[in-house]
């Protein structure tokens, strides 16, 4: 299995890098973090209180930016067909895409969150909790991206539809992700981890079924 699995992951990471799929979420997060103080005013207390939650929303939207590049190009080019002919299960294709998508945006986002948090005057404690929350939550965001990309592959205006599908599913992530930012919020991070685990575990199965059903 490893013979073909890691080349598959590596190819997707390289594709994301070449296609600007990695730079875009990073630039997006920085841009939102620098626009936010203009919108709510430069009050450090207000920014500190609301900035963390805003970064979670930005992270969620950043995860959805490359969704139309995750599955549709491979489907249209026949790559998914060629993989299926070789007997590679659709679930493993989805898992490879999940891992590659996370590598492409999870760690870069966590690094970018540091200057973004500085722009918003977050306290050191909040930044630490934000990073822990992102470390736990970004795999789930990646899973959500792969899931909706698989479901909408081959449809017209799939990008907009993907957003509409993903955002309701992301509500629990947002609640517990932003909830984990305040002091003494150990329960929220555990709930976040539980939901992340559920999404990450279900996605290969659900996305694999979607890829199979979309074959014609």
């Amino acid at each position: 299995m490893t013979r073909w699995f890691w080349p598959l992951v590596w190819r997707d990471v390289v594709q994301a890098w070449r296609g600007g799929g990695i730079g875009m979420p990073v630039a997006f997060l920085l841009l939102v973090a620098s626009l936010f103080p203009f919108a709510v005013g430069p009050d450090a207390n207000l920014l500190g209180a609301t900035g963390g939650g805003m970064l979670w929303i930005a992270a969620l939207l950043a995860a959805l930016l490359p969704v139309d590049r995750l599955v549709t190009p491979d489907r249209d080019a026949g790559v998914l067909d060629q993989l299926a002919v070789r007997g590679i299960p659709d679930e493993m294709i989805a898992l490879a895409k999940l891992i590659a998508h996370w590598i492409g945006f999870g760690p870069p986002l966590m690094i970018t969150a540091l200057p973004a948090a500085a722009l918003l005057k977050l306290s050191a404690d909040t930044i630490l909790r934000l990073e822990i929350g992102l470390a736990v939550g970004t795999p789930a965001l990646a899973a959500l991206g792969v899931l909706v990309a698989s479901l909408t592959a081959g449809l017209r205006s799939s990008g907009a539809l993907a957003g509409l599908l993903a955002l309701p599913l992301a509500i629990p992530l947002l609640i517990f992700g932003a909830g984990s930012l305040s002091e003494g919020s150990g329960a929220a991070i555990k709930f976040l981890a539980a939901i992340a685990l559920l999404l990450t575990a279900l996605t290969p199965i659900a996305a694999g079924a979607a890829l199979r059903a979309g074959r014609e």
């Binding site: 073909w4 080349p7 190819r11 070449r18 249209d76 080019a77 026949g78 067909d81 060629q82 070789r86």
Partner: peptide, 23 residues
């Protein structure tokens, strides 16, 4: 079939090399 299924940005050798690795 009628689908290329090769990464068009890569040199031919590397694009085909991906599939030989998979195979």
């Amino acid at each position: 079939d009628e689908n290329l299924a090769l990464d068009t940005g890569l040199p031919l050798r590397d694009a085909l090399g991906f599939w030989t690795r998979i195979d």
